[in-house]
C-alpha cells in the first residue's frame, strides 16, 4: 500500500532527526573527552604513550568511517560483546571524533608560543595548572573554528549509521521514501534538515575564523 507524503511522514523524519542530534551530541561530547586525552598524550613526555596515540590517529584517519562502524558492529559480537546498532554507532563515532579532535587540538597546543609555557614554569606552576590555566584556554580558543568545522563533518557522518540499520534521519528517509515512492521529495526534505543544522554551524565557524584572524 502506497502512503501519501503527509504530516505523519514528516513527523517520522523529525522524530528520527532527534536521534541524529543525539548521536552527534554524544559522539561530540565523548569524542571531545577522548580527543583531549589524545591531544595531551600526544604532547606529553611519555614516548610510548605518544606513539600509541599516534597509531590510533593514523588508523582512524586512514580508514573510512563506514568501515570503522562495520568493524565495531560486526566485530564486537565476535568478542562476545553484544551491541545494538545505537551503541555500536555511538562508539564508532566517538572513536572517530577522538582521533580527529585529538589531532586538531594537538596542533594548536604545539602552535602555542614557547614563552607561554616557560613563563608558567618559571612561576613554579605544575603541569596540570599550566595545562588547565595557560595552555588549554589558549589552544582550544585557537582551535574553535576547526573544531566547529569538524562538528559539521560529524553531524553528516551520523548518516552512515543508516547503513547498519540504526534509524536516524537518513534511515527514516529511506523508510518514508520506500513507503511513499517519493524519493526526491523525501530526500530533499532530509537534506534540508541536515542543511538547517550544518549551515549555521559552518557560518559560525567561518565567522570565528575571521574574527580570530582580525584579532591578530
Amino acid at each position: 500500500m502506497v502512503q501519501t507524503l503527509g504530516f505523519n511522514q514528516i513527523l517520522i523524519l523529525l522524530e528520527a532527526f532527534r536521534w541524529t542530534l543525539a548521536l552527534a551530541a554524544i559522539a561530540f561530547v565523548c569524542g571531545a573527552v577522548g580527543g583531549l586525552g589524545i591531544a595531551l598524550i600526544r604532547t606529553s613526555v611519555f614516548g610510548v604513550l605518544r606513539r600509541a596515540a599516534a597509531t590510533f590517529i593514523i588508523v582512524f584517519q586512514g580508514t573510512p568511517l563506514l568501515m570503522q562502524l562495520f568493524v565495531i558492529y560486526y566485530g564486537l559480537p565476535l568478542l562476545n560483546v553484544t551491541v545494538n546498532a545505537w551503541i555500536a554507532v555511538a562508539i564508532g563515532l566517538t572513536l572517530h571524533a577522538s582521533a580527529y579532535l585529538g589531532e586538531i587540538w594537538r596542533s594548536t597546543i604545539m602552535a602555542m608560543p614557547k614563552g607561554q609555557e616557560e613563563a608558567a614554569k618559571a612561576l613554579g606552576l605544575k603541569y596540570w595548572d599550566r595545562t588547565v590555566y595557560i595552555v588549554l584556554p589558549q589552544a582550544l580558543r585557537m582551535a574553535l573554528p576547526s573544531t566547529v568545522g569538524f562538528l559539521v563533518q560529524l553531524i553528516k557522518g551520523t548518516s552512515l549509521a543508516a547503513i547498519i540499520g540504526f534509524t536516524e534521519l537518513t534511515r527514516a528517509g529511506q523508510i518514508v521514501s520506500n513507503a511513499t515512492y517519493q524519493p526526491l521529495i523525501v530526500f530533499s526534505l532530509v537534506g534540508a534538515l541536515y542543511f538547517a543544522l550544518c549551515w549555521p554551524l559552518s557560518h559560525f565557524s567561518f565567522n570565528l575564523e575571521k574574527r580570530f584572524a582580525n584579532a591578530r
Binding site: P113, G115, E118, A119, A122, L123, Q138
Partner: peptide, 20 residues
C-alpha cells in the same frame, strides 16, 4: 625544580604575559 622555581622569579625579553 618546583621548589627552586618558587624562589626564582624570571622576566623575559618578550614579556610572556598570559594574553587571555
Amino acid at each position: 625544580i618546583d621548589a627552586i622555581r618558587c624562589e626564582v622569579g624570571m622576566v623575559f625579553q618578550q614579556f610572556n604575559l598570559f594574553p587571555h
